[in-house]
Design a protein around this nucleic acid. Structure first.
Lengths: 210, 210
DNA sequence: CCGTTAAGTATACACTTGTACACATAAATA
DNA sequence: TATTTATGTGTACAAGTGTATACTTAACGG
């Protein structure tokens, strides 16, 4: 890459990192200003416009980073869980590890899911849908829940995502130095996902429980 | 109530309504200013301080309104579903009805759950926990899932809440005039809750699915 | 090597923001 | 009825905001 582009990418990343750092401090993404993000990136306010038109524009680029993080997570999960005896608990633990390694990014995600502009919300939603579809594909590949329709399997996958989204919000509010509380949450979530999979295994198109 | 207090409550409510209206327009709660909320309430900026110290203070009072709405929802659910053949689907439908009747309040809730200040997040979380505990109490009263420990029943209740939280975010992004899409989501959610309850019914302390 | 280009700077302007302070006025109280 | 009190007003100011415009200067391409 040319020197000029390289430098450009550098400040661009500084700007995005500055916004993420703000979120990581517990501040709301929608409450940061262009000037503030520029200041923290060590750059003059107007330089911001060389990279993004808007804070929303920057946010959409953060979604791309999120996307990469999620894909990496999935790849790693597939490598580790191929023969699988503790598939669910391993996956949840792996997710939590990634979550803690990218706190700011996941915080941004859960904020953008219900805050932010309509387009931003949509972008995050699409990422989560993609994640759910991949999960469905894995279930199919592993010949799990073969008695269910593909649609129902995707529905189940989405349910698992929602469950995991629940732990996400809770974990992000626990200080990083409280592993005991982390463990509690993890166990709870593992049980929840297991209940979901157990229910799916017994599902027969029309459930006896209504 | 004295005339003075009555008038005070009136402008107080105007301020809270103005903030909710802002959220209902799709704007972020954390992005509204004291001046803006005062303007929309038809009152001078400094009058705001006669009622709230902060926007966060106002937000915490909105949580109280939310709390009332949730309690009303639970009471109604109990009255309607006593003998119950379609308990799950009826409950989900009732929830969606309340959600649509108080769009702004639920939007505020889902924003505050992951956005906002730590205390605000905590306040909303506590409301949801309360909701989950009530659900557990109902399960117990109806002698549903009697083979589970109280803790596991609460865990299941929380799982149901998360599931419903999922539909909440999705529903709020569908224009109000698209009942067909609403129906789709409702059916999906009903199925999800049924899967959860089915899994809970088959749960035997250590799940065969791992 | 030298003119061109584009990333970052400097300055400027019109707004909006939170909040302090002194004030008006209607309700409460004595 | 006279006095006090509290809700809402009007004005003011320093600080922060988005963004337009003209600029420097280092890398690029012929």
């Amino acid at each position: 890459m040319s020197i000029r582009l390289e430098k450009k990418q550098l400040t661009r990343q500084s700007l995005m990192d500055a916004a993420l750092a703000w979120v990581d401090e517990g501040q709301d993404f929608s409450a940061i200003s262009i000037r503030e993000v520029a200041k923290r990136a060590g750059v003059v306010p107007t330089a911001f416009y060389r990279h993004f038109t808007d804070m929303e524009d920057l946010a959409l680029n953060l979604v791309d980073e999120l996307s990469i993080a999620l894909r990496r997570l999935m790849r790693e999960a597939r490598q580790k869980n191929q023969q699988a005896g503790h598939m669910i608990s391993d996956s949840v633990r792996l997710y939590v590890a990634h979550l803690l390694a990218h706190r700011a990014l996941f915080r941004f995600m859960s904020q953008a899911l219900s805050g932010g502009s309509a387009t931003l919300r949509r972008a995050v939603r699409i990422e989560m849908q993609f994640f759910a579809r991949e999960l469905e594909a894995d279930l199919q590949a592993m010949k799990l829940l073969p008695h269910l329709s593909a649609q129902m399997r995707e529905n189940i996958s989405q349910l698992v995502i929602y469950t995991v989204a629940g732990i996400t919000v809770e974990l992000l509010d626990i200080p990083a130095n409280q592993p005991a509380q982390h463990e509690k949450l993890i166990h709870k979530t593992i049980a929840q996902v297991q209940v979901v999979m157990l229910g799916a295994a017994h599902w027969k198109s029309v459930s006896p429980v209504q």
